[in-house]
Nucleic acid binder design. Structure first.
Lengths: 186, 186
DNA sequence: GAAACTATTTAACAAATGATAAAAAAAGAA
DNA sequence: TTCTTTTTTTATCATTTGTTAAATAGTTTC
């Protein structure tokens, strides 16, 4: 997905403001298995996915747990790091070779103070991520792993094709063995 | 918690901008058990809790599930409704007699377009709620119900004193019987 | 304070999920 | 291709959690 569309989907900006943001963005590619963000680092960039798929996971406990997938059009960002300037929770690993747009957060923060349209773009960006996070939380709190898997099959069939099932099981909050059982029953 | 402190904790505003927001805020009280927000309604107000405690729950399935508690200083808001202007997920019920600050979202939306400080206040508001929601999601994805209960005991002991255990169990994602078992073991 | 109601704990059994191991299938490398 | 490695499925058993029901503790109301 190209950057104009990604920016516009968040909040339509006047041309001048859009040019200002775009001037801060550069393209960068990484191979499969590259670790883009690390939990022990305060991040200085946010990324948007032009092409590819990634996962966020934590290995704070003995076995790592995947808690987010990103694909074309999605932002790759440690929200904790972006918002609070502290270390985040997650490592983010590329599951395919990826084409990314990179934006330095420091530059963006300065634009927020100067340009009301960009400030409102930043507001909408946070609001939309908030809604997505809330949806994930509620789906997790209300439904069973089986229901969430079926939901995923319906809304994100390509995710299941592109990502190995161990990561999906972890994301759903069950073991891979349990996921296999569910798949056998459906 | 008084409104000046609530507004300031989100993002310190210049006096003029703060006066503009405060002019849109009024105080309102409701008794225990009052249902402040309804899932089937598009909300026109957001609230901040001056005094009291509330819970958000859904009864989409047969048995209702509590997925959020709010107390002094917290915003009471259907984020889905606030951000997308669609129906939200939750009913929100007062668990104690509450003193609230009310702010009409329509007025706030207009201020976002006019005042860059208020736009950035709105950005910080969404960002902070995002971090809180993300924390809840991650705690739910990584830890067991027992761990989350202990976490709650440590970080929010008064919540457990002020809220009946059935709601807490539901919030933790277990049955009340299971929570009783955990409490007996600790 | 007694009666009525609500909330919490305890017990017994059933159902679901996890752990471990092994087999089968799929993907990568030589 | 063929061999090796990784991923996925299947099977068995142990553990955890849910369900139901009853007992206890705590609140509210008259």
């Amino acid at each position: 997905m190209i950057i104009d569309q990604i920016l516009n989907n968040i909040y339509p900006l006047p041309e001048t403001s859009k040019s200002i943001i775009k001037a801060c963005i550069s393209e960068i590619n990484f191979p499969k298995k590259h670790v883009l963000l690390r939990a022990d680092k305060i991040e200085s960039s946010i990324y948007f996915i032009k092409k590819g798929i990634v996962r966020a996971y934590t290995n704070s406990t003995d076995n790592e747990i995947t808690f987010w997938f990103g694909k074309e059009g999605d932002p790759v960002i440690s929200m904790k790091s972006y918002v609070t300037n502290q270390k985040g929770y997650e490592d983010i690993e590329l599951l395919e070779e990826c084409e990314l747009y990179e934006l330095k957060t420091e530059k963006l923060q300065k634009l927020f103070e100067k340009d009301i349209h960009i400030a409102n773009w930043g507001r909408r960006f946070a609001e939309q991520e908030l809604i997505k996070t809330e949806e994930r939380l509620i789906s997790r709190q209300l439904g069973t792993a089986r229901e969430r898997y079926i939901e995923l099959l319906e809304n994100n069939p390509d995710l299941i094709k592109r990502v190995q099932l161990g990561h999906i099981a972890s994301y759903l909050g069950i073991t891979q063995v349990s996921l296999s059982r569910i798949r056998a029953e459906i």
